[in-house]
Design a protein around this nucleic acid. Structure first.
Length: 792
DNA sequence: AACAACGGGCTTTTT
DNA sequence: GCCCGTTGTT
């Protein structure tokens, strides 16, 4: 929640800066270089000229990037001249944090660091008038864009089945990512014939209308941020030159995920000094569906023929088994850069492959294993992750984890800022900031209910368009107003007066004051407050609003230079934030559930990779082409390489798809893993408690692995050793007690064998009376009791 | 204008 | 199975 508060707002002031004279180089400042291996060190110290770093999974890529920047600063490069582009806000803030530790706060703060979208949205704001956009332009999120497209399709009297917002949006988005403007789109024979073939001849018209409407609304969508940055740098040479000189050193993280629009921005900015460093791993390119172009990596050598290439191939994250298994998968791909990832880490245990009957059973199995492993090996919840292909799969795991009282956190899904109540209040902020923001206006004109219904709205929209006015201008236009009944007129005027009064104060009042005023005067706060007793969801909504407002309060008070932070400033980054960027304290020690996509860049001791079934993973949508299948395979590679110690792969024989039971085949990816690194487990059905099948580490592998570059693994016996050293009975394994019943025979570590006599209480207060022949009857709080179920 | 009931489509991934 | 939007009802 408060990451946007902490996010440093780099000042990208217009106007030319004086180029600083480089201070002398001081030797001995760079002790941290000793922490690097040879190839990492080379990648850090050779910071002049174009270079490409191919960084295998877990090879210390972030370390190289941060040290490289720190080293540059140590060598006298002005941090003000460094631009570092990352893929997520989280990556940017992490890197900034690490750099701060090395070079100190003030230097670190001067480095411009952020995602393409956030960095260039700020540059666009500074130069907005060149493009005819207001400085406070709105950023439309996907929802806004689709809603606008829907309106346009309706206004053009087109078939909304044929021109589905998601399809149209995707098409426009692809075009913009390729820097194809709406005019170029309309004039491109190939594109047009494609649209005709798909029976969507009006696509070009929709695209053009969409662009016009966004412009009139003073709004840019996600893709526009990159598109218009290109326009800005193309049409205004002085602007281009300014940023070329400002950003003399450019670093791009996750280069394999950049699209053409991003590629060209970087190329242009780097054209003068060519101090460009791109870091990436072609094997981890998983975003081609949104325009990422793996060719950007391959083209790098053409653009900068004398570039330096650094390969980071030593993996520090995972066991040999994981690394080699991952290698064995990825070699099935045709398109890739030659490299060999290796590790000096322990051999580790084989990848377990388990089958369950249903998706629910898969959930129970994984939850039970986590429960058992955590108890048995003294692990933390945070050591576990469940990774899946699609968000909808989270459900079964969620339920199973809840049954066992295991704390978990689901990442992805609906972000905080996409919740209805948050979007509603933000829409007020947006409209008050930018009166032209049509999507915001549509959202709130009758929310809370103020008697301005659909017919009235449509009337105003049509009449405003006829007069060439924006929706909001139409609402205040005397001629248009007079066409409506006096009751309607007064309601409209009351609304517009309120918004205008917000608008008049918005640049003057501190963000928090303004936000409170809007929340109160709009009636929104009251509306949500009144609904609070309806149910827990309503309470949560109210709390979300409270959370947002307290976030704004913190933002307002951050006040570094004693300046007043206003609401429009608050809005700048909000559209670009997802709560994947934020980590609340209470979420720190929980089992993580997320899609493989969102797991990129993360690591976990123990990974459960679930739903490995044909048509699910690889996704059915990917089976049309080799390229798509290879992307799925890279996704599998990413998933596997998240694991430090163990990876358990599961699949279900059948699962519910769209409400009906479908049978499924195991994924082809399972068999693609070199067999010497896997073991298939058989489980008993009905929830998969692993008591009897045992999860004691397997004995050493036979043959095959000897060719690995390191001595035999120490940790083959580690599980047993760990147990011994903890002084506990190696045979003792605490069981999940959620379905303990009267009559069960159990084993207690000190009391020995006993029988359950009675169970009382619920939840945390659940107790069992157990009779131990040696000790007599004991009442144990199940929350703490460590019992092994011997017999049911 | 407000609410309930119904039906359709959806599910790949997200800055 | 669920969410969303549309339709029908008062």
């Amino acid at each position: 929640m408060d990451s946007f508060i902490c996010l440093d707002r780099n000042k990208l002031t217009p106007g030319y800066s004086n180029f600083p004279i480089l201070p002398l180089i001081f030797a001995g400042m760079s002790a941290y270089l000793d922490e690097l291996n040879e190839s990492q060190r080379l990648a850090v110290i050779n910071y002049e000229g174009p270079s490409m770093v191919i960084a295998g999974a877990g090879s210390g890529k972030t370390r190289v990037l941060t040290y490289r920047i720190a080293y540059m600063i140590d060598q006298g490069i002005d941090p003000f001249n460094i631009l570092a582009l990352t893929f997520t806000n989280k990556a940017a803030s992490e890197m900034k944090e690490r750099i701060t530790k090395i070079v100190g706060d003030s230097d670190a703060r001067s480095v411009v660091m952020g995602t393409f979208h956030s960095v260039f949205s700020r540059i666009l704001r500074i130069n907005s008038e060149r493009l005819g956009f207001p400085q406070n332009f709105t950023i439309y999120d996907t929802q806004d864009s689709k809603s606008l497209i829907k309106d346009i399709v309706k206004e053009l009297n087109l078939d909304d089945k044929l021109y589905k917002p998601s399809v149209v949006y995707g098409r426009i988005s692809t075009a913009k990512n390729q820097l194809v403007s709406s005019d170029e789109y309309a004039n491109n024979a190939e594109i047009i014939s494609e649209d005709y073939a798909n029976k969507r001849p009006m696509m070009a018209t929709i695209y053009k209308t969409y662009v016009t409407r966004c412009f009139k609304a003073g709004a840019m969508d996600f893709d526009d941020l990159l598109f218009y940055t290109n326009v800005l740098l193309r049409d205004f040479p002085d602007v281009l030159q300014h940023y070329q000189y400002k950003f003399r050193y450019i670093l791009v993280d996750e280069y394999q995920d950049t699209n053409f629009a991003q590629y060209l921005i970087v190329k242009k900015l780097a054209a003068v000094f060519e101090n460009i460093c791109v870091v990436g791993d072609d094997a981890q390119s998983i975003y081609s569906f949104r325009g990422a172009n793996i060719q950007n990596i391959l083209n790098f050598r053409k653009d900068y023929p004398d570039f330096q290439l650094f390969k980071l191939e030593q993996n520090y994250r995972s066991t040999q088994v994981i690394v080699e298994a991952a290698n064995s998968i990825i070699k099935n791909n045709r398109d890739q850069i030659e490299k060999k990832v290796w590790t000096e880490n322990d051999l580790g245990t084989k990848i377990k492959i388990v089958r369950t009957l249903t998706d629910n059973e898969e959930g129970n199995l994984v939850a039970n294993r986590i429960f058992d492993m955590k108890r048995g090996e003294g692990l933390e919840y945070r050591d576990f992750a469940i990774l899946y292909r699609t968000n909808r799969q989270s459900r079964a795991f969620e339920e199973a984890l809840r049954k066992l009282n295991l704390p978990y956190k689901i990442y992805g899904g609906l972000s905080f800022y996409q919740r209805k109540e948050i979007k509603d209040i933000l829409a007020y902020f947006r409209l008050a900031t930018n009166l032209k923001d049509e999507e915001a206006l549509k959202r709130i004109i009758n929310y809370p209910k103020r008697g301005i219904g659909q017919t009235t709205q449509e009337g105003f929209i049509i009449k405003s368009a006829e007069k060439g006015l924006t929706f909001f201008e139409g609402l205040t236009d005397p001629d248009i107003l007079n066409a409506f009944a006096s009751g309607v007129r007064s309601k409209i005027t009351e609304f517009t007066t309120m918004i205008q009064s917000f608008h008049a104060q918005i640049d003057k009042l501190p963000a928090y004051d303004m936000a409170m005023e809007i929340a109160k005067s709009s009636g929104l706060l009251k509306e949500l407050y009144n609904e609070k007793d309806k149910g827990p969801e309503e309470v949560e909504r109210y709390q979300n609003i409270e959370e947002l407002i307290s976030g704004i309060k913190a933002f307002t008070q951050q006040n570094q230079e004693n300046e007043t932070k206003t609401l429009p400033e608050f809005l700048i980054d909000v559209a670009l934030l997802t709560d994947a960027d934020e980590q609340k304290d209470e979420d720190r020690n929980k089992v993580s559930l997320m899609t493989i996509h969102s797991s990129k860049g993360l690591e976990f001791k123990h990974v459960f990779l679930v739903g490995l079934e044909e048509n699910l993973f690889p996704s059915q949508m990917s089976l049309h082409s080799r390229a798509e299948l290879e992307e799925e395979r890279r996704l599998f590679y990413v998933a596997l390489t998240r694991a430090e110690k163990t990876c358990t792969i599961s699949y279900a024989n059948s699962r519910f798809v769209f409400g009906s039971l479908q049978t499924s085949e195991p994924s082809r990816f399972i068999t693609e893993i070199d067999r010497q690194y896997t073991e298939h487990e058989t489980t008993q059905h009905g929830g998969g408690r692993s008591l009897k099948s045992g999860r004691i580490a397997e004995p050493a592998f036979s043959g095959g692995l000897n060719r690995l570059s390191t001595p035999p693994a120490k940790n083959l016996r580690s599980l047993d050793e760990l147990k011994q050293s903890n002084g506990t009975n190696p045979d003792f394994q605490a069981s999940s007690l959620s379905d303990l019943k009267v009559g069960y025979n159990v084993l207690h570590e000190t009391f020995g064998r006993g029988k359950v006599i009675q169970i009382t209480g619920n939840g945390d207060d659940k107790r069992a009376v157990i009779f131990f022949p040696k000790e007599g009857s004991k009442t144990l709080l199940l929350r703490f009791a460590k019992l092994q179920i011997v017999e049911e």
